[in-house]
């Protein structure tokens, strides 16, 4: 008598992977093995049925929206960022522009007889930069005030932008 098929061999047969001819012949002629095979067949048929859970139909759109946002980068991520940047620039300009009076500066510089620029160590030492800067900023409205105001306002805007990005847990796209 040929041995009956092992359980794993029956499963292999149902997976279409049993190649042993003697075993295949046995299976064809053996009612006992056929009976055991019959017990597996409904299970194998049912195993191809998908789980019932389905995501919302909007899943692809949600993913694509995130991808688009991902690609744009943090500063242009959405409307809020754009408003912050444009608003920040306007604020920075309106704060700094009143201080920008180049004609007055040139006149005051002439009166003060500021040294000519030659960018050497000696010149820098002679310039005695910081006390002179303090003195100048006390006496006249220099463009440096204007620049400092502009830079300060811009820094605040960038800081706010980064804080919002951080709070939202945004991750920039990996460079490829």
């Amino acid at each position: 008598m040929t041995d009956h098929l092992r359980d794993a061999e029956l499963q292999l047969y149902l997976d279409h992977q049993l190649a042993d001819r003697a075993k295949l012949d046995h299976l064809r002629g053996c009612p006992f093995c056929q009976e055991r095979l019959d017990a597996y067949e409904p299970l194998f048929a049912a195993l191809t049925s998908a789980p019932a859970w389905q995501p919302s139909p909007a899943l692809p759109e949600k993913v694509m929206r995130k991808i688009r946002r991902d690609t744009l980068g943090p500063l242009h991520e959405n409307l809020l960022h754009s408003i912050l940047i444009i608003g920040g620039l306007i604020m920075a300009l309106s704060l700094s522009l009143p201080y920008l009076r180049p004609a007055e500066y040139v006149e005051e510089a002439r009166k003060m007889r500021l040294p000519e620029i030659n960018l050497s160590w000696e010149w820098l030492r002679e310039l005695n930069f910081l006390p002179r800067l303090a003195e100048m900023s006390n006496r006249i409205a220099l463009p440096v005030n204007s620049i400092l105001m502009f830079a300060g306002a811009l820094l605040l805007v960038l800081l706010a932008d980064q804080l919002i990005t951080f709070a939202r847990g945004h991750q920039p796209p990996r460079s490829r």
């Binding site: 041995d3 009956h4 098929l5 092992r6 359980d7 053996c30 009612p31 006992f32 009976e35 055991r36």
Partner: peptide
């Protein structure tokens, strides 16, 4: 199971 005698 491999050695069992089949009974309908």
């Amino acid at each position: 199971v491999r050695r069992v005698e089949w009974v309908p």
